[in-house]
Simulated scan of single mutants.
Amino acid sequence: MDRLPSGLLVGAMLRRANDAGGSGMVLAKGDAQAGGILALVVEDGRERLFERGLGPDGAPALIESTPRDDVTGYWQRRRARDPDLWVIELIVAGAQRLVAETIAAS
């Protein structure tokens, strides 16, 4: 099965966050077709990073990649090494679930 374009997935997550009464923004714009997506989720005052990866069974899964400290520095270093990477911030209740439903399932 072909994956949906990254730009489409990012737009869907931003709209879903807005529709749920939260907010979302693009911190770094990546490749519209095939860029990876790193989602900075802010819930209950905590910042966590999630991205699409492969689970133990080889199926697409949501992977948490939050560093122990300096979340901003981490995503900026990742972005410097991968200019195609999208970085988005979502501030909304249930943001982790929203990301999982959008990027891990596509």
Score class of each variant (00 low, 15 high):
Asp70Asn: 15
Gln33Ile: 13
Pro67Ala: 08
Gly45Val: 10
Val87Ile: 13
Thr66Pro: 09
Gln96Ser: 05
Gly73Asn: 12
Gly73Arg: 05
Gly36Tyr: 01
Glu43Arg: 05
Leu38Cys: 08
Asp57Gly: 12
Gly35Ala: 10
Gly94Phe: 03
Tyr74Phe: 13
Arg3Cys: 07
Ile88Ala: 06
Gln76Thr: 06
Asp44Cys: 07
Glu64Ile: 00
Ala17Gln: 06
Ser65Pro: 03
Gly73Trp: 07
Glu51Gly: 10
Pro67His: 10
Leu14Lys: 12
Met1Thr: 14
Gly36Trp: 01
Ile63Trp: 10
Glu51Arg: 15
Pro67Tyr: 06
Gly35Asn: 12
Val41His: 02
Val87Ser: 05
Pro60His: 06
Gly73Ala: 06
Arg68Thr: 08
Trp75Asn: 07
Glu51Leu: 11
Ile103Thr: 02
Val41Trp: 01
Gly30Tyr: 05
Ala95Asn: 07
Leu54Arg: 13
Ser6Gln: 03
Ala104Gly: 15
Val10Pro: 04
Ile88Gly: 04
Pro5Asp: 15
Val26Cys: 11
Arg15Met: 10
Leu40Gly: 05
Glu89Ser: 15
Ala59Pro: 00
Ile91Glu: 14
Gly11Lys: 07
Leu62Val: 09
Met13His: 06
Met25Tyr: 03
Ala20Trp: 04
Arg46His: 13
Ala17Cys: 09
Glu51Trp: 01
Asp82Gln: 11
Glu47Met: 03
Pro5His: 15
Val42Gly: 06
Leu9His: 00
Val10Glu: 06
Ala32Glu: 15
Ala28Arg: 15
Ala105Phe: 10
Ser23Thr: 14
Trp75Ser: 01
Gly45Cys: 12
Ile103Leu: 00
Asp84Trp: 02
Pro67Met: 11
Leu98Asp: 02
Asp84Lys: 08
Leu54Ala: 06
Pro67Leu: 02
Ala17Ser: 10
Ile63Gln: 13
Ala17Gly: 09
Ala80Pro: 00
Ala61Trp: 06
Ala100Lys: 12
Leu14Tyr: 09
Val71His: 00
Ala95Ile: 03
Leu85Ile: 05
Ile103His: 07
Pro60Phe: 05
Val10Tyr: 02
Phe50Ser: 00
Val92Tyr: 11
Lys29Glu: 15
Asp57Ala: 11
Val99Trp: 01
Ala32Pro: 07
Ala39Ser: 07
Val10Ser: 04
Ala28His: 15
Gly58Asp: 13
Leu49Val: 02
Glu89Cys: 11
Val42Asn: 13
Ile37Cys: 08
Arg15Phe: 09
Val99Ser: 00
Arg15Thr: 08
Gly7Ser: 14
Ala105Trp: 08
Asp44Ile: 00
Leu90Tyr: 01
Pro56Gln: 12
Ile91Phe: 04
Ala12Leu: 11
Arg46Ala: 12
Ala12Tyr: 06
Glu101Lys: 04
Val71Arg: 04
Gly53Arg: 11
Ala39Val: 14
Gly7Gln: 13
Trp86Cys: 04
Arg15Tyr: 07
Leu90Trp: 01
Leu49Lys: 05
Trp86Met: 04
Ala95Lys: 10
Ala95Gly: 12
Glu43Asp: 13
Gln33Ala: 11
Arg16Leu: 14
Pro56Val: 12
Leu54Asn: 09
Arg15Ser: 14
Asp44Gln: 14
Ala39Trp: 07
Gly24Thr: 08
Asp31Leu: 04
Phe50Glu: 08
Arg79Pro: 03
Lys29Cys: 05
Asp70His: 14
Arg97Pro: 01
Gly36Ile: 04
Ser106Tyr: 13
Ile88Met: 06
Ala34Val: 08
Met1Ala: 12
Asp31Arg: 09
Glu89Asp: 12
